[in-house]
Amino acid sequence: MERSLPDGTGPIYVPLGHIVACERWRGSQLAQEMQGKIKLAFEEGLTPVDFYLSNRSCILYVTEADLVAGKGYRKRLVQIRNSSHLQGIVLVEKTQMSEQYFPAAQKFTVLDLGMVLLPVCSQKEAASLIIQLVHEQAKEPSKNPFLRKKRAQLSEPSLLQTVQQIPGVGKVKAPLLLQKFPSIQHLSNASMQELEHVVGQAAAQRIHTFFTQSSDSAPRAL
């Protein structure tokens, strides 16, 4: 599939069953884990994307070092979020060292930008996930595996933790909300009346205000 990079520089073609990686990943554990299991090619100038799949899909990888270093990775996420021709998923290394920085990254990625985030504990786990996505895409090219992964993540603890961070929710109300609204998108689009039926008027008002403000202030460019 041919497409342009987010900055408009030249097309890139990714056949089904293949993945194109940014040159900086050559020789990394992540690339080594994928070698021989899928068809992997490297190209210069793929920034801000780390890996391109077919079917308008791409992967941004936030390393443990990226999280600890600060907010520099956010610019890359916003660039993909603002791209009208790409479906992006964000893999984030959640380790003992980076765990304290993970909630902020999760809130920014899922709540502020509305992107799919999947935590991984290592590059080996990330490679396994990417290989699975490539194989699924090759089997069903008309479907986007990122959307299936987003649905599959609904029962993941990471999503529950994200919802718990919304003002007025907490550990008690979060599971109730996810039973009624099985995704961040559903929850953000819920009316005041729908929210009140689940969590009551006071909490519903805080949740509704949070998403309204997030929508109005979500960054569209850096």
Rank of each mutant, 00 (worst) to 15 (best):
E2T: 12
S4G: 04
L5Q: 07
D7A: 10
G8R: 06
I12D: 01
Y13K: 12
Y13E: 11
V14I: 15
H18S: 05
V20H: 07
W25K: 07
R26V: 02
R26K: 15
Q29Y: 03
A31S: 14
E33N: 02
M34Y: 01
Q35A: 15
K39P: 01
L40N: 03
G45Y: 05
T47V: 10
Y52N: 06
L53D: 09
R56M: 11
I59S: 04
L60P: 02
L60V: 15
Y61M: 13
T63P: 08
D66R: 12
D66C: 14
L67K: 14
A69M: 11
Y73K: 08
Q79E: 15
S84V: 15
L86N: 04
G88A: 15
L91C: 01
E93L: 08
K94R: 15
S98N: 13
S98V: 08
A104L: 09
Q106H: 08
K107I: 10
T109Q: 04
T109S: 05
L111Q: 13
V120Q: 00
C121A: 12
K124G: 11
A127E: 00
A127T: 00
I130A: 00
I131R: 10
Q137K: 11
K139R: 14
P141T: 07
P141G: 05
K143E: 13
K143P: 01
R148M: 07
R151C: 01
L154T: 14
L154N: 11
P157H: 04
P157W: 04
Q161V: 04
T162P: 02
Q165E: 09
P167K: 01
G168C: 10
V169Y: 03
V172E: 12
K173P: 01
A174E: 09
P175E: 05
Q179A: 13
P182A: 04
I184S: 05
S188K: 13
N189E: 14
N189A: 14
A190Y: 02
M192Q: 13
H197V: 09
G200N: 04
Q213D: 02
S215T: 04
A221M: 06
L222R: 09
